[in-house]
Amino acid sequence: MTLVPYTAGEKPSLVASLQRHREAVLWKLEGLDDEQLRRRVVGSDMTLLGTVKHLASTEYSWFCSTFDRPSDEIPSEVLDEDPQADWRIHPWETTEGVLSYYERARAAADEAIRELKVTERGTSWNGNRVTMRWVLIHMIEETARHAGHADLVRELVDGRTGDHREFTTDVS
């Protein structure tokens, strides 16, 4: 499990925080079968697998499209027609496919983060000029919020609780 360093600089601290929440989201999926990952347990259509699909598209959008980099986000035309399209898991979408999509999105985002300074500016989907710093903070918020949703959904699916994987520290 990634820990946010206590004394690192700005960018390494932001990246570690984002990674920590990404790991928490993925941890919430561990040990569940396909039916459980697709199960709706709250009033909305939210599922654990749908949360991952949404986060993948969102990472592509903010880290890639904002900075004119190649992106595989759910197209805005699709979202204009169906605002929940990035949350919906279709019968033909596999768990492995959605997890692979998230893995590719994180890799593309990580490449952008590595290559760009926190002061680099891009243009967001809504036309606002934003810095990489702002995008990192926004995606930490977004991922942490959905990790919290995943906490509750996972508890309703099978009773498992906890916000992060347990870890031990070697103090020798």
Rank of each mutant, 00 (worst) to 15 (best):
S71W: 08
L79R: 06
A150W: 01
I137Q: 11
N128K: 10
D158G: 05
H149W: 05
A109H: 00
E141P: 06
L48E: 11
A147N: 05
R20K: 09
V171L: 12
T47A: 03
A109V: 06
M46P: 10
W134N: 06
D163A: 11
W125V: 14
D82C: 01
E120T: 15
V42W: 07
R40W: 12
S100Y: 14
V15Q: 08
G127Q: 01
V153Y: 04
K28S: 02
L26S: 07
E23A: 03
L152N: 12
P83Y: 08
A105N: 05
D33P: 00
V15S: 03
V4G: 01
M132E: 07
V157H: 11
E35H: 15
D82Y: 00
E155W: 08
G9W: 10
E93K: 00
D86T: 10
V42I: 14
V25H: 05
P91Y: 08
R154I: 07
Y101K: 05
E96A: 07
R154H: 11
R88A: 12
L136I: 08
G31S: 04
V52Q: 02
F63S: 00
P12R: 03
G122Y: 04
A108Q: 01
W87N: 10
C64Q: 11
E142D: 04
D170P: 13
E166A: 13
P12Y: 02
E103I: 10
P75E: 10
V52L: 03
E141L: 08
E111N: 13
W92H: 15
C64P: 03
T131D: 09
S65W: 08
S71Q: 02
E111V: 11
S17N: 12
T168R: 09
N128Y: 10
R133Y: 13
P12K: 03
T51C: 02
V118T: 13
K28G: 05
L55N: 02
S100A: 14
R39L: 10
A112Y: 10
P70C: 01
G127H: 02
S124T: 14
Y6N: 13
H21C: 08
L136M: 05
R22G: 02
E166D: 15
A85D: 06
V78H: 02
L37S: 00
V25P: 04
S124N: 13
A150D: 12
A105C: 05
S65P: 08
L18R: 05
G122M: 05
T58A: 10
E77T: 10
F67T: 09
H146T: 13
H21T: 15
R121H: 15
R145F: 11
A144H: 02
P75G: 05
R154W: 11
V171E: 13
P75M: 04
G127W: 03
T51I: 09
T161K: 13
T168L: 15
W62T: 03
D45M: 10
